[in-house]
Design a protein around this nucleic acid. Structure first.
Length: 591
RNA sequence: GCGCCUGUAGCUCAGCUGGAUAGAGUAUUUGGCUACGAACCAAAGGGUCGGGGGUUCGAAUCCCUUCAGGCGUACCA
């Protein structure tokens, strides 16, 4: 069962207005011209009513009259009997402001309690299957702070879509093939050989089993400004992070220098076979810590094994979308609306990254038949999105079935300054470090607090230090407060057990209006892919609740009022708990 | 050069399918608890919505132009 009081009220207003206009036409007071659609909105200022319609402003021109005159005619012709509304007012340049009657408010509260954990759910998605792919970090190293944003957003977006009636699955795409992995192997191999060599053996002799010391020494050495001073030099096109050295050392501890005599290729393969599964497992545990559980982990390598990657090439060739130049195979992207052509198969015969990616999206949308694929990506991939759309077109797939949520970059701020992440050093704040420093609730809430297309500053000092005055805390406090009140009142025998409730005070009405907004907001946020609207909402909700709490006493109120307010508290608790549950954030009963 | 994103209060950001006096948090100042949880509430100050043009009853919102920042623009992913 779905319940959306705001939507119902808006529909009622439209009916009231339309029938009033019908009366005016039949009485010859206005012409019968076709009229543009008008909007019903919730005004910012409650003095402007519970709902506001701009019908007179929008239609005045077509009817060759002025907005206020038309508005007045509509007010005169409107019939409110049998509707949720008590009165209509003409205001400002010609707005029609509608004021709700008591019954509507009572029903919102009782229906919310009736629905409980289901309150807020809607049927916008009507069971459509969507696949939300997010994070999909390379398994060649640890995740960074950008993945923290993408993770929180992707996960909450999937929940939001589920709340809105979509059948949404979460998926992580593992790039366990191709160039990145080759680079990973090369890096591991170089580090391994360094450990087997003279300088490496010296370090091992000196520090014995203190692997942390050994890896950090090697890492520091590789960071030296002057390349000639480095004892463990590395080329530019490899991974330099400390995690690579750790893997090499661990392998060395287990197997010794057995790989030293092997071919470069063999050595790299052995090391990748050892380290990649460890990294993949690490991704999963780190994300679990972040409360993200995927429905599926999809391996790129499976697309190579199944032949899907080759099929993409054949498909594109057969479609006449390719040509050869300089020994490489190109896609005629410009013919399909792209900015420039690009390479599918390199002259060495290996596919570029985009080919398995096409196969992957084909798999999502055709093989598995999802209605939509939603990719949560970092802003540094926006060029990629255009290319992917062109490719989908070439594959005969409607490119509108791919939606992309772009997350702008996250700047890490420490001591008031932006920390520059250098690629060379491989130095970055990892997701797991971040989660050690910042509570999970807060991280998930914070990254969902802002629209994804703003560039975000993440101030580490602030996040840690201000944990007692941050927004998520404020919301949780409201929930805990309600729980305690309900508990205390119940102890004294006061408990709402159904029945009619009535309200008289403005803070009560304000709170009920806010409760009523939830389903409509879920629809809005889901259709815009904006989970941040939910955090914003629940924060505002807590605000309105606190205000109600401060102005409307419960304990000392007369019995009828007390019970109504208890019902309102319980409904408020339901709202906060439902939204926080959706975001996978704790709703504590005590704190 | 071209493309995408951003520019709103001291700071961090909402508002952007045009609507009524541009809003929150934070910071600053000031009030409110012998208590249904003050981890809260209330009040005040703080704005040329980057600049300039245009569209109309009405522009932070749409169009043009310009300035500033971020990111892209590989036979890397």
């Amino acid at each position: 069962m779905f319940y959306n009081a705001v939507n119902q009220a808006k529909s009622e207003i439209k009916e009231i207005v339309m029938s009033a206009l019908g009366v005016l036409v039949s009485e010859g007071k206005i012409g019968a011209e076709p009229l543009p659609a008008f909007q019903v909105t919730i005004p910012n200022d409650s003095a402007h009513g519970d709902f506001s319609a701009n019908v007179a402003l929008v239609c005045a021109k077509a009817l060759k009259t002025n907005p206020r005159a038309l508005a007045q005619q509509i007010v005169d012709a409107a019939v409110l009997e049998g509707t949720s509304f008590d009165k209509i007012e003409l205001a400002g340049p010609g707005f029609l402001n509608f004021f709700l009657g008591d019954k509507w408010f009572s029903e919102v509260v009782t229906n919310t309690l009736l629905l409980g954990a289901d309150y807020g759910k809607t049927n916008l998605g009507a069971g459509k299957r969507v696949l939300v792919e997010f994070v999909s970090a390379n398994p060649t190293g640890p995740m960074h702070i950008g993945n923290a944003r993408g993770g929180a957003i992707g996960d909450c977006l999937a929940s939001l879509l589920q709340t809105a009636g979509y059948q949404a699955d979460r998926e992580f795409y593992i790039n366990d093939a191709g160039n990145q992995v080759a680079k990973f192997g090369k890096s591991l191999s170089l580090r391994y050989m360094q450990l087997c060599g003279g300088e490496g053996q010296k370090l091992i002799a000196e520090y014995g089993s203190d692997n942390e010391k050994i890896t950090s020494e090697i890492y520091k050495d590789s960071q030296k400004e002057n390349p000639d001073e480095r004892l463990f030099p590395m080329p530019d096109d490899v991974y330099l992070g400390q995690d690579i050295i750790e893997h090499a050392k661990n392998y060395y501890d287990i197997n010794g220098d057995v790989l030293a005599d092997k071919s470069e290729e063999e050595r790299a393969k052995a090391l990748v076979d050892y380290a990649l599964p460890l990294n993949e497992a690490r991704l999963e545990t780190d994300l679990m810590k972040y409360r993200i559980k995927y429905d599926n982990w999809f391996k790129e390598s499976s697309l190579h094994k199944s032949g899907a990657v080759k099929e993409v090439i054949e498909h594109l060739k057969a479609g006449g979308y390719t040509y050869e130049q300089d020994g490489a195979l190109w896609l005629k992207a410009t013919e399909l609306g792209g900015e420039q052509d690009f390479v599918l198969l390199r002259s060495n015969g290996f596919p570029t990254y985009i080919v398995p990616d096409i196969a992957y999206h084909y798999n999502k949308l055709v093989t598995r038949g999802y209605d939509k694929a939603i990719d949560v990506l970092g802003a540094d991939h926006h060029g990629y999105v255009k290319r992917m759309r062109v490719c989908l077109k070439a594959m005969g797939i409607d490119e509108k079935r791919l939606d992309v949520v772009m997350c702008q970059m996250v700047n890490l701020v420490r001591d008031g300054e932006v920390v520059k992440l250098s690629k060379r050093s491989g130095k970055a704040i990892t997701l797991s470090t971040l989660l050690d420093e910042v509570p999970i609730d807060e991280a998930r809430f914070f990254f969902n607090l802002r629209s994804t297309d703003t560039h975000l500053d993440f101030d580490l000092d602030l996040a840690v230090e201000e944990s007692s005055k941050n927004p998520v805390f404020y919301v949780q406090y409201a929930h805990a407060r309600i729980c305690r009140v309900l508990e205390k009142m119940a102890e004294s025998g006061a408990k709402y057990n159904g029945g009619e409730v009535n309200f008289t005070e403005e803070p009560e009405f304000a709170l009920i209006r806010k409760i009523a907004e939830l389903p409509e907001l879920v629809n809005e946020a889901a259709s815009e892919y904006s989970p941040f609207k939910m955090t914003k909402y629940v924060y505002e909700f807590a605000q309105v609740f606190h205000k109600f709490y401060d102005t409307c006493p419960i304990k000392d109120a007369e019995e009828r009022v007390k019970l109504a307010r208890l019902a309102l508290c319980a409904a408020s608790k339901t709202v906060i708990a439902n939204v926080l549950a959706m975001l996978k954030i704790d709703a504590p009963e005590k704190m």
